[in-house]
Design a protein around this nucleic acid. Sequence first.
DNA 1: CACTGCGTTCATAAAAACTTGAACATCGAC
DNA 2: GTCGATGTTCAAGTTTTTATGAACGCAGTG
Lengths: 170, 170
Amino acid sequence: MPRAHILEAPRASSRITPAEREVVEFFVHLGRYLSLPRSVGEIYGLLFANGGAMTLDELVRQLSISKGSASQGLRLLRGVGAVRVGYRPGDRKDYYEAEVELPALVRGFLRDQLSVRLNHANDRLQRLRDAVGDPANGAPNGLVNRLERLESWNKKAKRLVPLVSTFLKI
Amino acid sequence: MPRAHILEAPRASSRITPAEREVVEFFVHLGRYLSLPRSVGEIYGLLFANGGAMTLDELVRQLSISKGSASQGLRLLRGVGAVRVGYRPGDRKDYYEAEVELPALVRGFLRDQLSVRLNHANDRLQRLRDAVGDPANGAPNGLVNRLERLESWNKKAKRLVPLVSTFLKI
DNA sequence: CACTGCGTTCATAAAAACTTGAACATCGAC
DNA sequence: GTCGATGTTCAAGTTTTTATGAACGCAGTG
């Protein structure tokens, strides 16, 4: 058994700098508004701070998170277009890089999340209005009317999406 | 001890109708996208379905939720402008009513939530950029630059808010 | 073939969010 | 003043979400 160095801290291959820590915390904080897990904010934050491409392994070590968290967090971030994966010839590792262009991010969100949800909500609304229309269900006065109004708002929101896209693409 | 009626369900003073139940479920579902607690969706949903003004007590009974949940949920909903409180002469109860005008709701959200957060984020960003600017903090190459870009996006988002307001006010 | 490096999966542990209910404060009525 | 009705608060219990790490699958390499 080698000599014990009890005061020696667990060694990370490369420690993150105070500046990086600050940026990571900023994105963790920001992520809270979007109900994102802390680990996701940390991963994106470190990739953003670092600027270059990093491997899953580096993220695990430098953030002291588990491989599972890193893998799942990266999947989510890839899913919304917030990180890109890169490859290097003769290297089996995946290299992750933060997408730092807000327009690209928002475009991805509008396209993949918001529009889908608006359509989904519209379907549900139509079915709801029909179900409520049946007199047997005892709908309060004016309810069908209020639901129809909801539908018209939904349509308006759908029209808003491309407007926002245009504005941000500038 | 009175005679037991083991098959008798607990009696609510006035049961909600199937139509109302459907509407409640719709808003619970919708609330999940906004990360709102189930109880909040239920409360808003029932107020929306009902159309009229209801007391905290009625919400508690008809939704079978606790007084605590109802009180806290109503506070949240008041906070974002989704319900209004009304009074009646000679009655100490508060009467709650759903705000069903989307423009009013979104205006409230943009004004009270989004703008505040954008400003908050901007403050944090400026402090972050300054901290990161200090060479002692070991910032990676180009980080200050990326942070400045974030700031410019933040400003762009702020400019977007009135645009959306205008569009929805139509 | 076995072995190793890399990423994913998933049962379980840990943490966070939500709900409950009882205690409390406030306001009028008596 | 006491009493009852009403709404809020908060500690404790419950449920949901997030993190962990061991097991697994897959590709290359030898």
